[in-house]
């Protein structure tokens, strides 16, 4: 077996596959189940300081090419986060990345500080959700100044916990935004959040299917976009990246690593292959390494010829 371990922002992962934020990830039990299924780490759903309801149903539809979702980031708030983190830590076997969110730039500091007290391995800052625009306006990830302001605010409040920022692909130049966020002190990135938003219409009723009308696009269709962005951000900033977007099998994950990702986020693939996808993909990646005589998977990071 190849050595699948990687180090990301100083944190050791037994393999590069992490559960992406927004899929499963509501309870400690669910995290443990994902780890038992083979994931190298997990990311929480976006955590709010106080309860946030999310959108009515339907919130999610998918076909073989893509998923469209507008769950609307529901969460019970910090007290639940405390309980779930305590539960997770009782049987902790892999790193946990706490994804945080707030409605206003100024509110990121407080949730970041509260979450840092729970000692997650890494904090991931969600400034790029495309399906709460009606409530909060354009995501902060769409502006260089907003994105770096949020990053600075979070960095000030979390001590030594590494901070990564989840970027949006729905911008003119993601590299410019990544550079600004890097200058604001980010320790790494998660690329990319969902694309769009997109719209799907039911023909017979002529109604938009999602209750929120529009939703972020994920799944196989967005993989080439994610690969390109990971490559560009990695080259431009030299910071470590969680590459996320349309990865559903071992080859996809290796491609993401060759583009420059250290960790690979797996989310929508749970829809296509069940929670077992983590174990299946790890096996597929290991098999490729064996055939291609790669002893350490981390040697593949950023190895695309250019």
């Amino acid at each position: 077996m190849a050595d699948l371990s990687v180090t990301f922002c100083g944190v050791e992962f037994r393999n590069p596959l992490v559960l992406a934020s927004g899929v499963l990830g509501i309870t400690a039990s669910s995290f443990h189940h994902v780890i038992e299924s083979g994931a190298g780490g997990v990311t929480t759903k976006s955590l709010w300081l106080t309860e946030h309801k999310g959108h009515p149903n339907p919130v999610m539809i998918a076909n073989e090419h893509y998923m469209l979702n507008a769950v609307g980031v529901p969460d019970a708030g910090i007290e639940k986060a405390k309980m779930e983190m305590a539960e997770y830590n009782k049987r902790k076997r892999a790193p946990i990345i706490a994804n945080i969110i707030a409605g206003r730039k100024a509110d990121y500091g407080e949730i970041a500080e509260e979450i840092a007290k729970l000692h997650p391995d890494i904090i991931e800052v969600n400034i790029s959700c495309p399906n709460v625009e009606d409530e909060f306006g354009k995501p902060f990830a769409c502006s260089r100044d907003d994105a770096s302001e949020v990053c600075r605010e979070v960095k000030k409040r979390v001590g030594r916990v590494p901070v990564i920022v989840k970027l949006s692909p729905n911008v003119t130049s993601i590299v410019e935004i990544a550079k600004a966020v890097a200058n604001a002190g980010a320790d790494g990135f998660c690329c990319i959040n969902t694309v769009g938003p997109g719209l799907a219409i039911d023909l017979e009723s002529r109604e938009p299917i999602l209750a929120n009308r529009v939703g972020g696009i994920s799944g196989p269709a967005i993989k080439p976009l994610a690969i390109r962005i990971v490559h560009e951000v990695s080259r431009a900033t030299k910071l470590p990246i969680i590459g996320t977007g349309g990865v559903t099998n071992g080859r996809d994950a290796l491609e993401m690593m060759m583009a420059g990702a250290t960790l690979v986020g797996v989310g929508t693939a749970v829809y296509y292959r069940g929670v077992e996808v983590f174990g299946l993909m790890t096996k597929e990646m290991d098999e490729w390494c064996r055939v291609n005589k790669v002893k350490k998977m981390r040697d593949l990071i950023g190895s695309m010829h250019s």
């Binding site: 899929v23 509501i26 669910s30 443990h32 999610m60």
Partner: peptide
């Protein structure tokens, strides 16, 4: 349940972590 197909995670049971919908 929100999604009905094992993605949203709302229906997970403790301590097994399994999704009731799948």
């Amino acid at each position: 349940m929100k999604c009905g197909f094992g993605v949203c995670g709302n229906c997970c049971l403790d301590d097994t972590g399994i999704t009731v919908c799948t």
